[in-house]
Amino acid sequence: MNTNLPEPGTEERAHAEHLATLLRNEIRVNGPMPFARWMELCLYAPALGYYSAGRTKFGPAGDFVTAPELGDLFARCIARAFAPTLRALGADADFLELGGGSGAFALAALRELAAQDALPRRFLILEPSADLAARQRERIAAELPPEVAARVQWIARPPEAGWRGVLFANEVVDALPTTRFTLKDGEVFEEHVALEGERFVCIDRPADLLVANAVRHLERALGAPFDDGYRSEVLPQLPYWVQAVCGSLEAGAVLFVDYGYPRREFYLPERRDGTLVCHYRHRAHADPLHWPGLTDLTAFVDFTALAEAGVGAGLDFTGYAPQGQFLLASGLLDLVGDDLPEVLRVQRIAEVKRLTLPGDMGERFQAIAFTRGGVEALPGLRAFDLSHRL
């Protein structure tokens, strides 16, 4: 157990123990649990998972800060980048946001789209957390004009009927339940969570065919086998997930922003324990078994795999670039404003620095985009395209 982390209160302890009981019961019935299943339950178990329960997740009072929580510049810049595409697609164009967070992105984006005369017919939020959806509804109803708020709809699954518009996902792929693998005597093993008495422990078991094939695909793409003992993450389900969320898009653009690397950087030999990171009260740690339901679990994104999945789903690849370069090329500095009070101007400049500097979010976060239906979109991303790195 990580002793450098703050101790939870009585209610939080009870919450974590409730989820731990559910996890123990499933392990006792089904045997050791694949790590991907552990992560799925810890994040999304109804009423108990990290994103499903009622704790504050985002901002200073939560466990981490996302780009939309820094201020409104990130969302406004994304909205401006999408505005020409929405206008070109016409009155029936929709905007689909995957995972609405605190609602900050939707608020700022809708205000900017209204200013750009590019409001979508519907602003759809695909939000798996009932708690977060309720908070988003309350905030949007309170802070947006009724005629704009009326365009916002919440959905529980991707649209099944064909639609036109744009899809945006910020820090979503990193929260997909990931598979952890390792190599022993050249064979692929998958990390599981087991029980020793009442205590959770990680063990390795021979991988099934899906996981083994995913790892062998990585080795072929990298041109060399992984060393014994090398441990990392892979998302065998990523192609199916991208197809599920993008498959019904008939014409439009798709943009993913997340932290990660191209494949050759993701699986560097020295990164031999993977990229899994746990967040608890603004502290990062490496123990995914610590306080289940109270800790956010994420893994960096293999952007090469995301590019493969997008093309495999029938999308046209548009470009790939660091977040900072993409935002600057999309007019981020134009949003700072020259006629603001000095205090607000200083705040916005600080926000720009966090979003764009290489040592902060500027290079750690990456943007990748696709289109469908012959749509032209996101010239700011194409201006700094680094797809040769994928």
Rank of each mutant, 00 (worst) to 15 (best):
N2W: 12
T3W: 12
T3H: 14
P6Y: 06
A14F: 08
A14R: 15
A14W: 04
H18G: 09
L19F: 09
L19R: 03
T21G: 13
R37Q: 12
L41C: 13
L48W: 11
S52W: 08
G54E: 00
R55I: 10
P68H: 02
G71S: 09
G71I: 00
F82R: 08
L89V: 03
G90T: 08
D94T: 12
D94K: 14
L98R: 06
G99W: 02
G101F: 02
G103W: 01
A108Q: 00
L110A: 02
R111V: 00
A114K: 13
Q116F: 02
L119R: 07
R121A: 15
R122V: 02
E127Y: 10
A130T: 12
A134N: 10
R137C: 07
E138H: 10
A142W: 10
A149I: 06
A150I: 04
Q153C: 13
I155V: 15
P158N: 02
P159W: 00
E160G: 14
R164P: 01
V172N: 01
P177I: 00
R180L: 14
D185G: 12
G186Q: 02
E190K: 01
E190T: 11
E191F: 04
H192F: 11
A194R: 04
A194N: 06
A194L: 01
D208K: 04
D208Q: 01
V211A: 04
L218E: 01
F226C: 11
V234Y: 01
P236R: 01
P239G: 05
W241T: 08
A244Q: 14
G247E: 06
A251S: 05
V254T: 08
V257C: 05
D258G: 06
Y259Q: 03
P262R: 04
P262V: 02
R263E: 03
R264K: 14
E265F: 07
Y267L: 06
E270I: 13
R272L: 10
D273E: 15
A286I: 05
D287K: 10
P292Y: 13
L297K: 12
T298I: 06
F300E: 14
F300H: 15
L327E: 03
S330D: 09
V336H: 10
L344S: 12
Q347F: 11
R348M: 03
R348V: 10
A350T: 13
E351P: 06
V352M: 06
L355C: 09
L357E: 15
G359T: 10
Q366P: 06
Q366M: 14
Q366D: 00
A367Y: 06
A369C: 08
A369P: 04
G373W: 07
R382I: 00
L386N: 12
S387P: 05
L390Y: 02
